[in-house]
């Protein structure tokens, strides 16, 4: 988004106030309203869509595949694979690759092996395909919320063969139509924009454009986790961050996480 000098300085000054005056009237810890939709893709194991008030839209589809556990242990395969497509961005741009690497590392750390385990030799592998149809602000929070909904609403085929296949060579067989809901805890990621001495959650495109810097913070089960990183929210306006602000943002995310999870769960 391109802002004129006057617009930029007006926005910056109002966001500098204490408490900050945000252009859409939100409070520091208020998210933009979201509209959710789950389980609408018949051909995938789980799916979700979130539409933001500014028109940003993200669709996530979860698919699964049975793989041998040995291939994961040997490092040939991973338990979770993430693919992201953002409209208007090249697949090999550093923007996309950075989103992928962040999500891959958070999901492979926090999606437990037990929850996907089938038998002693086989396990499910999850493919998380993310499509951001339109995007006006930094999409990571949107993506992580949508993936949360999709993963929480994923149904995997029910195993009918025996779990213990150590002794006997046996391919797992599945029930014809019954599915089991995937029971996992999913981490989510928050974006905080830093403006002067203020920190605001879920910045929209205008706020991003004038912000001094941005931080992404992971949240899992009531606690703060990696990634804790700073991100570039605009081109060339970035400034250094005071350490206190990072700590305050982390505290804010820690206190908000549970209520966000509750409202996301209510969306099911």
């Amino acid at each position: 988004m391109i802002l004129s000098v006057a617009e930029r300085s007006y926005l910056y000054e109002s966001l500098k106030q204490s408490p900050p005056i945000r252009p859409d009237g939100r409070s520091v810890k208020q998210f933009r309203p979201i509209q959710t939709n789950v389980g609408f893709l018949e051909s995938s194991n789980g799916s979700a869509k979130i539409t933001l008030s500014d028109g940003s839209e993200c669709i996530v589809s979860i698919k699964s595949k049975v793989i041998e556990k040995a291939s994961i242990e040997s490092g040939r395969d991973t338990l979770v694979d993430v693919d992201i497509e953002v409209a208007g961005q090249r697949d090999d741009s550093s923007f996309i690759l950075n989103l992928i690497s962040t999500l891959k590392s958070i999901y492979s750390n926090y999606i437990s092996q037990e929850s996907l385990s089938l038998t002693n030799r086989f396990t499910y592998k999850l493919f998380i395909d993310i499509l951001v149809i339109s995007n006006y602000s930094y999409p990571l929070t949107l993506i992580s919320f949508t993936s949360y909904l999709a993963l929480k609403n994923t149904y995997l085929p029910k195993l009918t063969s025996s779990v213990d296949d150590k002794e006997i060579e046996e391919q797992p067989t599945f029930h014809d139509y019954e599915f089991v809901k995937l029971q996992i805890q999913v981490p989510i990621i928050f974006t905080v924009a830093i403006i002067d001495n203020n920190y605001i959650i879920d910045p929209n495109s205008q706020e991003m454009e004038v912000s001094d810097n941005g931080i992404i913070i992971g949240w899992y089960d009531g606690n703060i986790i990696s990634p804790i990183e700073n991100v570039k929210l605009n081109d060339g306006n970035s400034k250094s961050i005071k350490p206190e602000l990072i700590i305050k943002s982390i505290e804010l995310v820690k206190s908000l996480g549970q209520s966000v999870i509750e409202s996301l769960n209510a969306a099911e």
């Binding site: 926090y110 931080i215 703060i224 990634p227 961050i241 350490p243 700590i247």
Partner: peptide, 20 residues
């Protein structure tokens, strides 16, 4: 003052002060 921050581990910060 911080210009770059990157933390990537499977450590869980139960207490924000740990990160401080």
């Amino acid at each position: 003052e911080i210009v770059g921050l990157l933390s990537d581990s499977n450590k869980i910060y139960k207490d924000v002060n740990d990160f401080n």
